[in-house]
Write a protein that binds this DNA or RNA. Structure first.
Length: 782
DNA sequence: ATTAGGG
DNA sequence: CCCTAAT
């Protein structure tokens, strides 16, 4: 299925008509002047945030304005490793005075959301949370703690890939040109960085803002970034408003805002977050674009009050000065640009970064020959890449200059649709239509092809593994990694490749994979995406908030560590198990494995229930011997099932016991279908496995079964070799009753049954009797 | 956080 | 059972 991207006429934000997984959608309107007087100053346009998120794999579900000053991000939980969110370089175009994370209580699968509430001013906060890195870190901690200390977390490799500092995490030093392309760092630049490396602690910062390529994927960065921020009493992270540092945040909130002040604050903030080298690198960057004078003398929002009426339904970008655009640009992409073309800037910003990253990465990769030649990838790279690489910046500038600013959304829209339409053909051929849109640098052409077409990926793990496995087939031909999307391989995911052990201290081969980290082709240690241990409950735990001063920190870290330990235990102890990680280990394979115990106790409990009689909900209070130890990672319940793709998927399956089913049915009859949480809380309080969702799923299944099987009536059990226990017809009947009572019977299900005819329709009485019926009949069955 | 659905 | 989207 082709996901069609559209361009929202009002917001100017990209969205898809359906399943636009990777794009954040704001459900409500951002603050307006009424709700937030300083909005004009504070929001470039809140919606920009989302685009950055497109670089994330998934994670962000929705976001909406909690209040005038609070934006809530609702992310998809790291419930399972498969869906572990890669929060990469989340960039908020506005700053947060307060940043809170919560949720993800341990062992509470139901707490799936991570919320980030932001009180913001006008600033940029970057969150760099890279799962892979964290994973690595954990590994290091677990195995080679000592090493970690003396090691900078960042390894910088110059383009010749000769310099490496001991650490699994390898970053390529590269400069991002104005058009988003990555250019291998020059010797000078490398030297600069090297100098900075003397101070290990500052490295991250150094490489941070100015060098997205080297990006701050460093865990420490994150922590440090917030180091200055006091944690509030609630154990939440409170980000001290950078503005405060620069001089009184209160001022900002005041009705009167000194633009100049704000501006300076902005700058200051930028510095505080970015590296010392910032200036230097900026210079180098600007050099290239020297052709352009720096007109950005205009201050933000200088020219009087913004038109709020416009602000509402229109793209705010239009109101921004070049300088503001620059700021936004930097905020969005984490790098400077000297492009003066407003349209270009606007488009770049609005279009988001994701693809430029990918493209850049691609290019980068190719250049370095790190992995198999990518040239084969027709989709990703246009031929002109080669040329652009030389001096991409100039090119794009030149183009942008000549471009009119009259480009409107339609153009974008058109272009995108166009490209979509041409999805079947090679992108290169699709270059033609791109000419339509103006204001786009040559790079945009590149990106145009793929950029908008971020396919929906349901299963990150799968896609990635597929990518790894298939991206380059033996023939070298590219194979689409996304089954249904029909899109090319995701540039995000790079094939694994080995690089030389980083240091003598490292005995293990270092396995890394290319990843577009922060829009650059950095290498990050490869870790299997398949989690063998308990799914990580709190991915935040993986970040090192060491300096946050919150009690949370140690605990979290510990958690991560524990996880690692668990993993290690689960894995057959292989001293050199490092590489082994690549392949999931089948811990246990078996049909009945561990299910006996449940069925056994099930029957017992079932009896209990029946004895207690219908009305008695007391049965709910019965403590099942089961659960408790339930989900524990004893390994017994951990099964891995081979995926069609050859990958492994973890599967912890627990057959539903009859008693559970009964409880469920009872619960539904009592609280109604849909109130799964209630049911879970009441009837399944002792079953720590069985989440509300599980109940819901099971009910759905029961529903199906009940309507499908009724005709068979007695013969129920026989049908097919059911891996799970058969459900007694009476129960199914009961289910059907309930379903019909609650009119949740879908016509589909209903239909087939009608023909069955002549069954115990007398079972259709009120719920009370129904309840008894179930029990009665049930007991009869047992 | 919860729920509905799709897969 | 997992995953996503929408409440």
């Amino acid at each position: 299925m082709i996901v069609q991207y559209k361009y929202h006429p009002n917001s100017g934000h990209e969205y898809t008509d359906h399943s636009s997984r990777h794009q954040l959608q704001l459900n409500n309107n951002p603050p307006t002047q009424e709700t937030y007087p300083d909005a004009n100053l504070l929001f470039h346009k809140p919606i920009y945030i989302p685009f950055r998120f497109r670089n994330c794999i998934s994670s962000i579900n929705t976001a909406y304005w909690k209040s005038a000053t609070q934006l809530q991000f609702n992310s998809i939980p790291p419930k399972s490793y498969n869906s572990f969110p890669l929060f990469k370089n989340l960039i908020f175009v506005f700053s947060a005075t307060e940043l809170k994370f919560w949720g993800n209580q341990r062992l509470q699968r139901s707490n799936q959301s991570v919320f980030a509430f932001l009180h913001f001013y006008a600033f940029v906060i970057e969150l760099h949370v890279v799962e892979c890195y964290m994973e690595t870190l954990v590994a290091i901690e677990g195995s080679e703690k000592s090493k970690l200390e003396g090691t900078s977390a960042i390894v910088i490799t110059c383009s010749d890939s000769s310099k490496q500092i001991a650490d699994p995490v390898v970053y390529k030093l590269a400069r991002v040109e104005g058009d988003g392309r990555l250019v291998p760092a020059t010797d000078d630049e490398v030297m600069e960085v090297e100098d900075l490396l003397d101070d290990k602690s500052s490295v991250h910062f150094v490489l941070d803002t100015c060098q997205p390529a080297v990006c701050v994927s460093n865990h420490e960065t994150f922590g440090q970034e917030f180091m200055t921020m006091p944690a509030d009493s609630q154990g939440l992270f409170k980000v001290k408003d950078p503005c405060t540092l620069g001089g009184g945040s209160d001022t900002v909130f005041g009705t009167t805002v000194d633009l100049g002040k704000l501006n300076s604050q902005f700058e200051e903030i930028g510095r505080s977050v970015s590296s010392p080298v910032d200036g230097k690198i900026e210079e180098s960057g600007d050099r290239k674009g020297s052709g352009e004078s720096e007109p950005s003398t205009s201050t933000m929002c200088v020219n009087g009050k913004p038109d709020f009426s416009k602000l509402k339904g229109e793209i705010c970008l239009d109101n921004l000065s070049v300088r503001e655009l620059h700021a936004t640009f930097k905020a969005t992409f984490g790098r400077e640009t000297s492009v003066k073309d407003k349209q270009w800037l606007k488009r770049r910003i609005s279009m988001g970064l994701s693809n430029s990253c990918d493209v850049s990465t691609t290019t980068f990769i190719i250049e370095n020959n790190i992995i198999t030649k990518k040239p084969k990838v027709e989709e990703d790279c246009n031929l002109n890449n080669e040329n652009e690489k030389e001096d991409p910046f100039v090119i794009s500038v030149g183009q942008s200059q000549s471009q009119s600013q009259s480009v409107d959304n339609h153009n974008h829209n058109h272009m995108e649709n166009d490209q979509l339409g041409g999805s079947s053909r090679s992108v290169q051929s699709g270059t033609t239509p791109k000419n339509h849109h103006i204001g786009i640098g040559s790079e945009d052409d590149k990106e145009g092809g793929k950029r908008v077409r971020k396919p929906t990926k349901r299963y990150i793990e799968v896609s990635e593994s597929e990518s790894r496995d298939r991206e380059y087939s033996g023939s070298g031909r590219l194979v689409s990694s996304v089954k249904s999307s029909g899109h090319g391989p995701r540039t995000r995911v790079r094939p694994i490749h080995n690089i030389q052990p980083v240091t003598s201290t490292t005995t293990r081969p270092l396995v890394t994979r290319q990843d577009s980290l922060g829009g650059s082709g950095v290498e990050i240690p490869y870790v299997s995406r398949i989690r063998r241990g308990r799914p990580r409950e709190n991915f935040m735990a993986l970040m090192k908030f060491q300096s946050c001063g919150t009690g949370i920190t140690p605990k979290l870290v510990k958690t991560a560590h524990d996880d690692e330990v668990e993993n290690r235990e689960l894995k057959t102890a292989l001293p050199t198990g490092w590489v082994q990680l690549q392949q999931p280990v089948i811990i246990k394979e078996g049909v009945g494995g561990g299910s006996e115990e449940y069925s056994e106790e099930a029957s017992g409990e079932l009896k209990n229930d029946s004895e207690e009689g219908e009305g008695q909900m007391d049965s709910y209070d019965d403590v099942e011997a089961e659960d408790d130890s339930d989900d524990n990672d004893n390994g017994n319940n951990i099964l891995t099932v081979p995926t069609a793709k050859g990958g492994m998927r973890r599967k912890h399956h627990r057959p539903w016991t009859l008693s559970e089913v009964v409880k469920l049915v009872e619960g539904v009859s009592r609280y109604g279908a849909g109130r799964w949480s209630e049911i879970k809380r009441i009837a399944f309080s002792t079953c720590s496995h069985r989440t509300p969702v599980d109940l819901k799923d099971k009910w759905r299944n029961l529903l199906r079964a009940s309507f499908a099987q009724l005709p068979a009536e007695k013969g129920v059990q026989n049908s097919k070799k059911q891996s799970s226990i058969p459900i007694p017809a009476p129960i199914l009947l009961r289910v059907r009753e309930l379903a019909e009572m609650q009119s949740q019977v879908s016509p589909d299900l209903k239909q087939p049954h009608r023909f069955g005819g002549g069954h115990n329709h007398n079972h259709n009485h009120n719920s009370n009797s129904g309840s008894r019926n179930v029990n009665d009949i049930k007991s009869g069955f047992l």
